[in-house]
């Protein structure tokens, strides 16, 4: 195994998320053999690799949807082993899904309200009795929902059903849902796949706005110009193991990466 490029030395930020020697086996199938990397506070790290490399599996492990066979994931000093997805979300680590994932039969506005679930705590009794505190909190939630819709830029769709939105806007709604939880780290699974260049451009601007808040971002994406343009560091996976890690300029020219993407023949060509 090629040693990962020692780019971690260039890292000055405190570590937010560390994936420590994680392995995932499905029966005899090894989805991830040994994954080890860190993401600094406020950093934007991209996880790339050919289809089937184990990127989404890595996401599932980090966010508690899957239990690693070996190794552990630590976020801000808390080991995530054994935590359920909603408990991982509670720690501020929130994901979006690869396929469009919104609440289809609810309006866009309701979708965001569902995402805001953890923001304001209103008791069951206060809700049933419609106490002033609960009415106030509900009004506050609605205010926050508008803020998020405006940030993402889909406020004009508020009263439409989530499932009726065009594809690109459904992806934005997925991000809005994740943002609604007020994450300190955001894991985006192929957010711009299926978007046209204009939409991708808008999305990159949205990412910049999210980063201004100090949010850490881990991105899985196939759109290489975008990845290389916005990432602080890139981590490359192939066949369930890490083959390269470093700033975009370094990773782009790594022979192992080129071989993984272009195939064995490219070397001799």
């Amino acid at each position: 195994m090629n040693a990962p490029v020692a780019a971690t030395a260039a890292l000055e930020r405190p570590v937010a998320l560390s994936i420590e020697h994680v392995a995932v086996h499905f029966g005899g199938l090894v989805a991830i053999s040994d994954l080890h990397f860190t993401v600094g506070e406020g950093e934007l790290v991209s996880l790339i690799g050919p289809n089937g490399a184990g990127k989404t599996t890595a996401f599932n492990v980090i966010t508690g949807f899957l239990r690693p066979t070996k190794g552990k994931v630590v976020y801000r000093g808390t080991p995530l082993t054994g935590l359920k997805p909603h408990e991982v979300t509670k720690l501020g680590l929130v994901r979006t899904f690869q396929r469009t994932s919104v609440f289809d039969s609810c309006t866009v506005f309701e979708n965001v309200l569902m995402g805001l679930h953890r923001r304001v705590h209103i008791g069951l009794v206060a809700t049933i009795l419609a106490l002033p505190s609960s009415t106030r909190a509900e009004a506050e939630l609605r205010e926050q929902a508008w803020d998020i819709l405006r940030l993402v830029g889909i406020e004009h769709r508020a009263s439409e059903l989530g499932g009726s939105l065009p594809y690109g806007e459904q992806r934005l709604l997925g991000v809005a849902l994740a943002l609604a939880t007020n994450p300190s780290a955001l894991l985006l699974d192929e957010p711009v796949s299926g978007m046209n260049p204009t939409e991708t451009g808008n999305f990159v601007r949205l990412l910049a706005k999210i980063r201004e808040r100090g949010t850490t971002i881990l991105l899985v994406e196939h759109d290489m110009p975008m990845v290389m343009g916005i990432s602080d560091r890139v981590v490359v996976l192939n066949n369930g193991r890490l083959i390269a890690e470093g700033p975009p300029s370094v990773v782009q020219n790594d022979p192992e990466v080129i071989r993984a993407y272009l195939g064995q023949g490219a070397k001799s060509a």
């Binding site: 919104v102 289809d104 679930h117």
Partner: peptide
Amino acid sequence: RAMIALKGNESLATSVGID
């Protein structure tokens, strides 16, 4: 909303922090 969310899409519901 939590109830409707878990009926609509359970993994999305858990990922936005709904127990």
